[in-house]
Every structure is written in C-alpha cells, then in structure tokens.
C-alpha cells in the first residue's frame, strides 16, 4: 500500500525549494528563443542564401557565430542549473548516486570547452575576412575597364563589411573570454561539490 505523505515529507520539499532559491527559468528560455527568431527573421530579410555576394557571406558568418554564442549561453545555463541541483541533492540526500550526476557535469564542461575552442577559432578576424573576387571580363578593349569597375563596386560594400567584421571580432573575443571564465567557474563549483560530497560521505576524513 502506498505510504501516506507526512508533514516531514512536505518540510523536506519546502527546504529543497528554499535551498534552490532560483528564479523561474522560463524567462531565459523564452528570451533565447526570441533572439533566435529575430535572427532568423534577419536572415530571411537579408536573403543569406544568395552566397554569391561577399557582403552577404560575411553577414551570414556573423549570424552563424551569434547562433553559436546563443547555444553556448543555453548550454552554460543548463550546466549551471544542473550543478546547483546537484549541490542541493547532495546536501539533502548525501548518497553515492550523485556521483553519476557529477560525471554528467564533467561531460557538460568538456562539451563547453569544445565549443569555446571552436568559437575561438572562428572569432579570429581572418575567418571573417572576405577577399575581393570579381569575375574578369573577356570583352576585348573595354574588358579591363569593366573588371576595374566591378572591382570598385565590390570594394565599396566590402570596406564597410570589414569595419563591421573587425568590430564584431572584438565583441566575439569578449564573449569568448567570458565563456572561458564561466567554464573555470563551473570547474571550481564542481570541485566544491566534490569536496562537499567527500565531507558528507566521509566526515571523519575532513576532521
């Protein structure tokens, strides 16, 4: 027969909620979704699929990069929440099964570090550099002038795109550094969880 709930069960649940003390998580998810939708709208408006245009290529890369940053933000938030929950569960139950969750956090941390490495690579300004590559004209006599005109026409938007790209690179690097910092924080938190677990499961070893 199923055991009836007691006041002590309810108290434990309240203490668990109090210990979590996290604000409702829905806002973050909704906002990330809003950013994604906004980005997709921009993509559609700019017709990124037309890869023949060098400026569009650059913008497309920037948008991709933003996607990755958003994903990373999401992953980091999930990892941190999971870590918080792990800590609370450990304090509450102090049993060995939390080891598995810690291993999961380890895996998450590795996944984030892989993301950061990738982002580091693409945030370097060279990845955003777009060369002028106008087609040469085969028309005799005036072909040379047509090519020069094409080159000039390509050069004008690229001038602004490169300014934009260099500024975006700075922003991206800052993002990248921040996530590196977050990763370290997670690692430290994980270490604290380990210590806590050790103190709970083997209290005599910490005396």
């Amino acid at each position: 027969m199923k055991r009836k709930l007691s006041a002590e069960d309810v108290i434990k649940d309240i203490e668990f909620e109090l210990a979590q003390g996290v604000p409702p998580k829905d806002n973050l998810g909704e906002s990330i979704e809003a950013v994604r939708q906004f980005q997709n709208k921009l993509r559609a408006e700019l017709d990124i699929s037309n890869t023949g245009s060098p400026s569009r290529q650059s913008i497309g890369r920037l948008l991709q990069l933003n996607d990755m940053l958003v994903t990373l933000l999401q992953e980091t938030a999930v990892a941190i929440t999971q870590l918080q929950l792990t800590q609370q569960l450990q304090i509450r139950h102090a049993h060995a099964s939390t080891r598995a969750l810690l291993d999961q956090i380890d895996t998450d941390a590795i996944r984030i570090s892989e993301h950061i490495a990738k982002i580091d690579e693409v945030t370097k300004s060279k990845s955003l550099f777009v060369a002028i590559d106008p087609q040469r004209s085969a028309i005799p006599i005036i072909g040379r002038w047509i090519s020069k005109l094409r080159q000039a026409l390509h050069g004008l938007p690229l001038y602004y795109v490169r300014i934009l790209a260099s500024k975006q690179t700075v922003v991206n690097q800052a993002f990248s550094e921040e996530y590196g910092y977050t990763l370290n924080e997670i690692t430290e938190l994980r270490q604290r969880v380990n210590d806590l677990e050790l103190r709970i499961t083997h209290p005599e070893s910490t005396d």
């Binding site: 604000p23 806002n27 909704e30 906002s31 809003a34 950013v35 906004f38």
Partner: peptide
Amino acid sequence: RSSWLEHLV
C-alpha cells in the same frame, strides 16, 4: 518589464 530578459529583442 518583468525581467531584463523581457523584450531582450
């Protein structure tokens, strides 16, 4: 706004 995340865009 209920939070900083509302109307992030």
